[in-house]
């Protein structure tokens, strides 16, 4: 409960601070004087909205009115937050975006699918072949079906995979 409250304060604070940033940075936008309404006015309004709602969310939290977590078919409301899995998924996504330019999309994508499925509880020797086949299939469909070539990386020059 306390952890949830701290998180709520933090998110409200984030909204408000994005608002503050908007207000400060809006002042640096170059604007000519001859124009009735320049490129600054709307950002100021958005900044005020963000600051006001961020502070209002913090006040609501302080009064004990916490936001209701979203419901969903696959969401179990009775379990604690599994931060380890969330962390693993974020790590897998970071690995994916770093690896695309290094070893190519097919390998980075297979790792993304495999890593995510494994983090979520799939058996690794079942997830691995699916990941490899799926990544190669998408690569081929993109290259030949849509005419968009994803970086082949280590498969450069390989027929079918390098569009």
């Amino acid at each position: 409960m306390i952890a949830a409250k701290i998180e709520e304060y933090a998110f409200g604070g984030l909204v408000a601070s994005i608002g503050v940033f908007t207000l400060i940075d809006a002042g640096t936008i170059a604007a000519r004087d001859d124009n009735a309404v320049g490129p600054r006015a709307f950002p100021y309004a958005v900044g005020i909205l963000l600051v006001a709602t961020g502070i209002a969310a913090i006040i609501a939290t302080a009064r004990g009115k916490l936001g209701q977590a979203e419901e969903g078919e696959d969401v179990d409301e009775n379990v604690r937050t599994d931060w380890v899995t969330v962390g693993k998924l974020v790590a897998v996504l970071i690995a994916h975006l770093v690896l695309i330019d290094l070893i190519g999309w097919p390998v980075a994508a297979a790792l993304l699918f495999f890593g995510a499925a494994w983090s979520l509880g799939a058996i690794w020797w079942k997830a691995l072949p699916i990941a490899v086949v799926l990544a190669l299939l998408v690569q081929v469909v993109f290259a030949y079906g849509l005419g968009l070539s994803l970086p082949a990386g280590i498969f450069e020059g390989v027929p079918f995979l390098d569009g």
């Binding site: 897998v92 995510a116 799926l134 994803l150």
Partner: peptide, 23 residues
């Protein structure tokens, strides 16, 4: 579900990357 959400993440990354092909 592990495969479903792994697939969602894969296609999310793919669809995003396919907009401009920049990381």
């Amino acid at each position: 579900r592990p495969y479903l959400y792994a697939g969602i993440l894969l296609f999310a990354a793919l669809g995003t990357y396919a907009v401009n092909f920049v990381v």
